[in-house]
Design a protein around this nucleic acid. Structure first.
Length: 263
DNA sequence: CCTATAGCCTGACGGC
DNA sequence: TGCCGTCAGGCTATAG
């Protein structure tokens, strides 16, 4: 479930595999993945050009040709970029594939079809149109700014952290982990949070995202004291030994330790 | 204005 | 053995 940490990883991955190679072909295997573009539009704009840089904002990634054309990638829940050289390494759900002149391929692999690929001219305009808030890593949000972004919410803290129009990139797993480590119940109303609690959430947010980004390639590196390693109803809390519970917050499954995270 | 909720999508899994 | 309901959570659209 790609959130900020995965996006940071995807960016590195694409930078390392897919830049500065002329695009020979674009093949769309399922047009439902396309956002306001077509296979022929993509071909006309991209064939013969290269991706020269990438840019990540929240859960979006942009492949830039340096020529007023950018490919916008959104990974939904099950999407990921896969670069491969041989057919046997082709992923299982390649909804769209770029073929490079050097024989390499970049697939947009997306099992559940909740992702999207679009062709845009300017990512800043795109971000504005989508109404996305700043990215906590690349946007370098200060603590006062963080408070500004969330403090007028009348909803629950977990839902608010996941609101992409306030802060872009925090999803279900990250918000769950942040609140577990900050020892705050996910259903706490934002307006009931103390300054100390807000500070704790802010500090934890950065640490969780950066630590998790390092573990994306190898899930066994997720720290054992994280709730992410214990997402099971009835599991032992790694902090207090109490019982982990599954609750629902705004329709999304959420694991908490009721002992550590009191309302 | 605001927040909460249903639904889209596909495959894994468990119960019968 | 195999069918079928439920769940997963990115988002958007709509209801409240």
């Amino acid at each position: 479930m790609p959130e900020l940490p995965e996006l940071l990883y995807f960016k590195q991955y694409l930078d390392a595999t897919s830049l500065n190679q002329p695009i020979q072909a674009v093949t769309v295997h399922n047009i439902k993945i396309l956002n306001d573009t077509s296979e022929s539009d993509l071909r006309e704009s991209l064939v013969g050009r290269s991706f020269v840089s990438t840019l990540q904002h929240g859960k979006y990634l942009f492949l830039q040709t340096g020529d007023n054309r950018e490919v916008e990638l959104h990974f939904g829940m099950t999407g990921r970029p896969v670069y491969y050289e041989h057919e046997e390494s082709k992923p299982e759900y390649p909804r769209l594939v770029f073929d490079f002149e050097n024989g390499g391929h970049l697939a947009f692999d997306c099992m559940r079809m909740l992702g999207e690929v679009g062709l845009i001219e300017d990512h800043e305009e795109f971000i504005r149109q989508k109404g996305l808030g700043p990215d906590p890593i690349t946007g370098d949000i200060s603590f006062p700014r963080f408070c500004e972004l969330i403090e007028d919410s009348r909803g629950m803290i977990k839902t608010t952290l996941m609101d992409q129009s306030r802060i872009a990139g925090i999803g279900n797993e990250c918000s769950e982990e942040i609140l577990f480590q900050a020892r705050i119940h996910p259903k706490t109303k934002v307006r009931d949070l103390t300054e100390t609690a807000l500070r704790k959430i802010y500090d934890t947010m950065r640490e969780v995202v950066e630590t998790k980004a390092k573990t994306v390639g190898s899930p066994n590196l997720i720290p054992d004291h994280w709730i992410l390693s214990h997402r099971e109803d009835g599991a032992d809390c790694p902090k207090c030994g109490g019982e982990i519970k599954r609750i629902e917050v705004s329709g999304r499954g959420t694991y908490i330790c009721p002992n550590c995270q009191e309302m």
